[in-house]
Amino acid sequence: MNLFKSHFWYEKSQRNGILFLLLLILFVQLVSYQIDRYPGEIPPSDSPEIIAFQKKIDSVKAMESALRKPKIFPFNPNYISDAKAAQLGISVAEIDRLFTFRRSGKFVNSKKEFQQVTKVSDSLLETISIYFKFPDWVVNRNRQDQKKRRGVVEHNRATKHSIELTTTDLNAATVLDFQFVSGVSASLAERIVRYRSKLEGFSFESQLDEVYKIDAKLTQKILKTFQIIHKPNIQKVNVNSLNFKELLRIPYVDYELCKKILNYRDEVAELQSIVELKNIKDFPLEKYDRIALYLTAE
Rank of each mutant, 00 (worst) to 15 (best):
Q34I: 13
D136Q: 09
Y38I: 10
T174I: 00
R102I: 09
K12V: 12
F101I: 01
A172Q: 14
N233P: 01
R249Y: 05
N78M: 03
F114L: 03
E246T: 02
W9S: 15
N140F: 13
T100L: 15
V31L: 15
I95G: 02
R149N: 13
Q115E: 09
Q14Y: 07
I130A: 14
K106H: 10
T296A: 06
I163N: 00
R141W: 13
P43H: 02
W9K: 11
L262Y: 04
Y264E: 12
D215W: 02
T219S: 10
T174V: 00
Y264P: 02
V253F: 00
L23R: 06
S197E: 15
L295T: 00
E154D: 13
T100H: 15
D36Q: 12
E126V: 08
H7E: 15
S273I: 02
S121P: 03
L23Q: 03
D266N: 12
G105E: 03
S123A: 11
D96H: 08
N156A: 14
L24I: 07
A62F: 04
T166I: 07
K106W: 07
F4S: 06
L21Y: 08
V117Y: 01
N76V: 03
P77Q: 04
F99L: 03
F204K: 08
P284N: 01
K224R: 09
E205G: 10
F20H: 10
G105S: 04
I35G: 15
I57R: 14
K231G: 13
I72Q: 05
T225L: 09
P284Q: 00
H161V: 09
S65E: 15
W137P: 11
